[in-house]
Design a protein around this nucleic acid. Structure first.
Lengths: 210, 210
DNA sequence: TAGATTGTTAATCGATTAACAATC
DNA sequence: TAGATTGTTAATCGATTAACAATC
């Protein structure tokens, strides 16, 4: 979509800009300067302007940025104007928690199906969505235009399942399994490694006692 | 604990080293060179050596690194030899999922208490832990040597609750609320912003269609 | 000893910050 | 027009990679 490759450092900051602009919008704020946003978000004004200018000139000299416009534009950059069809693989506690969290749907990420190997929960429903056996996964993915698979399964099976899903046409993974997936370069993987996150906290707690 | 400040970039890579070394150890591998590890983990050997040397010389010229020793040392650096007492604030689906995930306890993160404002679930148990009212939180934190609070509450209350918890003596937050906490500099915050993560995936999917 | 591989210094690359001309 | 603030170039800072002497 864009010409030059944008660094992941910049992309990682976009959702936070989006969040703060959404809040300012809800507060009825009409315009904001990079300096004001800098004060609120505690990043440099320079970084804000540099980041935004990777995608175009959204501001106006002497005025600043229109809050609602910038909010909408960042939303588009993030692809939030597009709908995504998701499946969850692994209907354990975490998988259920994600299905039950409504805010993702508000942003266009729609849970279409849930799959699990456990026969005891197959056929049950989670927020109105039936838990299906893995054997139905291929057909379901192909017939329902699924582009994202959420992996909330043990790491032992995650790599294999991911490989299968790639062959079914999945384009992106939201991977909660504690393992690195190896997928072709055209497939996107976003990892959420909770234990890694907790270990970072642990390190920072320990090193602060110094 | 360490002399010079280590960058968060390095710290962020430690859990991944730890994970791979644990796997190699389980496979019975005795020694590993930075080059071998580089091939497996797909990072440069140079980066591995640089990262490790922030904390000391764990290897031996001509030999490489002893897998088990390095694994243990990184564990210590990450503070995993210390126990942490945790409370969960917010007993919704996500809070419950975290309590039910046993692997954190294996690493020394022990869930001691669960708190929620919803009277209907107060008194119920999640994996043997009673859900308590918020009014009991202060006493519980002080009497049970709680150092980490896991926030799985809506963002509207997270900032206030965090401020209270700081006054009760909490040292670190594992924050799943979609808001930035403002806490004193001696308090550690590790954020898990799931919707930010999903937005990054969305961006990368969209930009790949280009 | 010879070969292998670390620890560490130096070179490169990329990201952040500062500065300011362009312009609303 | 004068003031404000962007867009963008230049300077700085930090992180990554390369190279190699030290050494097991």
């Amino acid at each position: 979509m864009e010409d030059k490759e944008i660094s992941q450092a910049v992309i990682g900051r976009l959702p936070r800009y989006f969040r703060y602009l959404g809040e300012l919008k809800d507060e009825g704020m009409e315009r904001v300067s990079s300096q004001e946003l800098s004060d609120i978000m505690r990043v440099t004004a320079s970084q804000i302007r540099q980041d935004l200018n990777n995608f175009g000139g959204f501001g106006q000299q002497g005025y600043g940025y229109n809050v609602e416009y910038l909010y909408e534009e960042i939303g588009k950059i993030l692809g939030l104007h597009k709908k995504h069809n998701l499946i969850i693989v692994g209907a354990g506690h975490l998988g259920q928690a994600l299905v039950n969290y409504m805010n993702f749907e508000r942003r266009g990420f729609i849970f279409r199906g849930i799959f699990d190997i456990d026969e005891k929960i197959q056929g049950t429903q989670i927020r109105g969505i039936t838990v299906r056996p893995m054997s139905e996964m291929e057909r379901f993915v192909r017939e329902n235009d699924i582009d994202i698979a959420v992996l909330t399964i043990p790491k032992t099976s995650a790599v294999d399942v991911a490989e299968q899903l790639v062959s079914y046409g999945i384009k992106g993974f939201w991977n909660f399994a504690h393992v690195d997936l190896h997928v072709p370069g055209n497939i996107q993987v976003e990892n959420v490694h909770l234990s890694d996150s907790l270990m970072k906290l642990s390190y920072n707690l320990a090193s602060h006692d110094a």
